[in-house]
Amino acid sequence: MGDTCVAMDEWVQNPTADTALDDILPCMDNATAQETLSESKEVIFQLAAVVNQIITNVSNNNVPPPPSFARPPLYYNQSGPLVPVLCNPYNPDKSDRKCAAGEVDFSNATQVWKNYECQVSKNNTCITVGRLTPDMYTQMTNAVNVSYGLYHYSPFLISLLDCSFVRETFTAISDDHCPDLRQYSKWIYIGLAMVSAAVMLSLVFWILYERERRHRKYTKLAKAAAAEDSFQQKRP
């Protein structure tokens, strides 16, 4: 585990170097990651702009009803309150933009727009009050869902590509857990060293004990042999 902390620290300090984690964490360079993020912002901006053009130029366009044989595609008997436009989170230069009053954002646009949907006839003309046909509502909902996904998840995905998310995670692990881990590892090392020393001393004492026991055994045998020889010599 200590080696893991060292490997994480080395990679965090220099992710482009040839480290132990370099092969399993192939990271995109920051310039490429930022370019990818910029492209995702452009897609979000364009989708929101297209949706707002439809709302402004078609849904909220109060054109007079022409003769039935000459109805333009912009007229489908839309009526009622105007549909609120979608909040575009970016300016044309891709800088962040705050929503204006009356705009709906990605989180509630589909629910709000549902109130402006009308029922249609067979020729796709509104027969009830409303400014969005079911087909228009579906297409606008799809555009919002795509924009919502890009807006909320692109930064996280980019952080995975350039490994900034991994870097932050490793830093948090190193700061929060590695110091205690190093301390515990040190204690474990000291404990193992003490156990090893105790085992070594036990072996030494056991060897000394065996030597002493054998020495006493041999001494007793020698004394017994000497006593027997002395007894034999004293016999007539």
Rank of each mutant, 00 (worst) to 15 (best):
M1D: 07
M1K: 05
D3S: 14
T4G: 08
C5E: 01
C5Q: 02
D9W: 08
P15V: 06
T16L: 10
A17K: 07
A17S: 13
T19I: 05
D22K: 15
D22F: 11
P26I: 09
C27E: 06
N30S: 10
T32R: 13
Q34Y: 01
Q34R: 11
E35D: 14
S38V: 02
E39S: 13
S40C: 15
K41E: 08
K41Q: 14
E42M: 13
F45D: 02
Q46P: 03
V50P: 00
V50M: 12
V50H: 07
Q53H: 14
I54W: 04
I54C: 07
N57M: 10
N57K: 14
V58D: 05
S59Y: 02
N62L: 04
N62I: 00
V63N: 03
P66L: 09
L74N: 08
N77I: 02
Q78T: 03
V83K: 04
L86D: 00
K94C: 01
S95R: 05
D96T: 11
D96G: 06
K98L: 13
A100N: 14
A101D: 15
G102V: 12
G102M: 13
D105Q: 08
F106M: 15
S107P: 01
S107T: 15
A109R: 11
T110G: 01
W113M: 09
K114F: 09
N115S: 15
Q119N: 15
Q119G: 09
S121D: 15
K122P: 00
N124D: 15
T125N: 13
C126L: 06
C126T: 01
T128S: 15
T128I: 04
G130P: 03
G130R: 01
R131E: 04
T133Y: 05
T138Y: 10
Q139C: 05
M140W: 01
V144W: 02
V146P: 00
Y148S: 12
H152F: 13
L161T: 02
D162Y: 05
R167I: 10
R167V: 04
E168A: 11
F170Y: 12
A172V: 05
I173F: 14
D176Q: 12
P179E: 07
P179I: 09
P179L: 09
D180S: 15
D180T: 14
R182M: 07
R182D: 03
Q183I: 14
S185M: 10
L192F: 09
M194Y: 10
A198F: 12
A198V: 09
M200G: 09
S202P: 00
S202G: 13
W206M: 10
L208H: 06
R211Y: 11
R211H: 08
R213N: 05
R213W: 02
R214L: 12
R214E: 09
K217W: 07
K217A: 13
K220F: 07
L221E: 14
K223Q: 09
A224G: 00
S230V: 01
S230G: 03
F231M: 05
Q232K: 05
Q233C: 02
Q233W: 01
K234L: 00
K234W: 00
